[in-house]
Design a protein around this nucleic acid. Structure first.
Length: 481
RNA sequence: GGCCCUGUCGUCUAGUGGCCUAGGACGGAGCCCUCUCACGGCUUAAACCCGGGUUCGAAUCCCGGCAGGGUCACCA
């Protein structure tokens, strides 16, 4: 049996880093075992769900290269993949549960629930604002054992069996987890407007979609128990669960959309992080493979397993993300990098830049000196402008009278060149230096400052090749003036 | 508060009873390479939460503490 896994976001905001990692783990497992990866949209929270959020999530997954076999835009034989499109199915199954004695209609009003809370508070001597849950409040509906039907809306509750002892499941990362039966109230499965609640919709869909493995955040551990009861009530076999640890921000609080901008996947795109670098980084945050740190997408697919997913929460480490990004900028095909770099370069002030031999050369020259595409674009833009503003301190240090003499001599050598390449230009630093009894650096720095306006750049050869013969002479002549 | 999960360098982690005088990576410090900046190479500081057991032997198993986290909605 080929495994079927899913990612089931609710479209209530952008794609969160934690969600992305959950999606990634499910996707990796499916890909590794030749299974199917399903994308399901849990849009039953009509208050918060928006089309924009849905699009943002789709965009985020697409950018990361996490593709789905079934779901929005793909179809598939287990749809609908939007929960709001299968309301009838939930109603039908909820009725089935009532018929089999596993659920009941609850006509309690908000007022009655509120009265119950107040009565509990009074009995315990609690003040306003005290947390009722902490004090052990449980709501027992008076409708639990009634079968009469009233002519007003009712919600449907699952009837937790009164049993002693404990129940649980074998988690793929946490191993055995159990809880006492009496830990659970009769939970709502269908709201009075006919829309299912999370636990119910989730179980129905995972069953309908023949999901075999569910990897999700550890915040879902406790909801696994009511879900297990639902599986029992329906006589269905539950999937295998893998609860993965949460991601925390550097301030040691849960990575949240509100407080932590880095929680937004697309923000990293804007920051010039390569999708493969982000994938590598979040995969390693919570999963390991011996001492290995760097993985291509294919290596991840070949090596991922739930056994090596850690049990404890991880902290977001921006500097390691940057280091990972540096690595992939250096090792990815220059052409690939160039294509992703282009929009950044255009935005940085080189609107006419295109993906061509020059840009590829630029990527090669700057791959080792850029932490991100943003940084690379920033450095490369000067190679796309006509003329350059020379930094004052750099000029003062290197465009001295002596420096200008050497710059002039270098210019003379450049003028003799029949081909304008790195290999042809580089040796000239030494040539000029030896002819003038000095070091190559004494020649290279004035050239560098004249050509780039600053004291830092790749080797003189590539730098000038990148600039082009004409622009190089233009800038040198301007500096010599 | 009840229940549940977790606890190795600052951070991510390797480690599944002897290979551990605890390894790697990021970050830090230093050195080398060098036409600048980088890259790279080398060196270095830095951790098994605490206390009891079990065992010839424990980071690894058990118990207790402590700490961190999750969850207890007609949200997901």
């Amino acid at each position: 049996m080929k495994p079927r896994l899913r990612f089931a976001p609710s479209p209530t905001g952008y794609l969160h880093i934690g969600g992305a990692r959950t999606a990634l783990f499910n996707w990796l497992y499916a890909r590794r075992h030749g299974g199917t990866f399903v994308l399901r949209i849990e849009d039953t929270d009509q208050e918060r769900s928006t089309p924009e959020s849905l699009q943002a999530i789709l965009d985020g997954l697409t950018w990361l290269g996490i593709d789905w076999d079934e779901g929005p835009g793909k179809g598939g034989g287990h749809g609908p993949y939007f929960q709001m499109k299968k309301l009838g199915r939930y109603t039908e199954l909820a009725e089935q549960l009532i018929a089999t004695g596993w659920a009941y209609r609850d006509y309690s009003t908000e007022a009655e629930l509120s009265d119950a809370r107040k009565a509990f508070a009074a009995e315990k001597g609690l003040k306003d604002g005290d947390d009722l849950r902490s004090a052990g409040f449980k709501f027992t509906s008076p409708w639990r054992d009634k079968t009469e039907q009233l002519d007003r809306p009712a919600l449907i509750r699952f009837k937790m069996p009164k049993r002693d002892g404990r129940f649980g499941f074998d988690d793929l990362v946490l191993n055995r987890i159990e809880k006492p039966y009496d830990d659970f109230d009769d939970f709502v499965i269908l709201r009075s407007d006919g829309v299912p609640l999370y636990n119910f919709g989730c179980v129905v869909d995972d069953h309908d979609m023949a999901i075999s493995h569910v990897a999700r955040g550890q915040e879902h551990i406790n909801s696994t128990f009511p879900q297990l009861m639902l599986y029992e009530a329906f006589g269905w076999t539950p999937p295998q669960f893998a609860h993965i640890p949460l991601i925390f921000a550097q301030d040691n609080s849960k990575l949240s959309k509100r407080k932590h901008p880095e929680a937004d996947v697309m923000r990293h795109k804007g920051n010039g992080i390569l999708p493969n670098a982000l994938i590598n980084f979040i995969a390693r945050l919570g999963w390991s493979h011996g001492n290995e740190e760097l993985f291509t997408r294919d290596e991840l697919i070949a090596k991922f397993d739930f056994e090596h997913v850690g049990k404890s929460q991880g902290v977001w480490n921006p500097s390691k993300l940057v280091a990972t990004n540096k690595h992939w900028i250096k090792t990815t095909e220059p052409l690939q990098v160039a294509m992703q770099l282009l929009p950044f370069l255009q935005a940085a002030g080189a609107p006419d830049a295109v993906v061509d031999a020059k840009l590829e050369l630029g990527v090669k020259a700057f791959a080792e000196r850029s932490a991100s595409l943003v940084e690379m674009a920033e450095k490369l833009r000067n190679y796309y402008s006509h003329g350059i503003t020379i930094d004052g301190a750099a000029a003062a240090k290197h465009l001295t009278p002596e420096g200008k003499v050497l710059l002039g001599k270098a210019r003379d050598e450049f003028a003799k060149l029949t081909e304008w390449t790195t290999a042809a230009i580089d040796p000239l630093m030494k040539t000029v230096a030896e002819a003038n009894a000095t070091k190559p650096g004494a020649v290279a720095q004035p050239v560098r400052v004249a050509a780039t306006g600053g004291t830092e750049s790749p080797g003189i050869g590539v730098t000038l090749e990148l600039l082009g013969r004409e622009e190089t002479f233009h800038r040198i002549d301007a500096a010599l003036r």
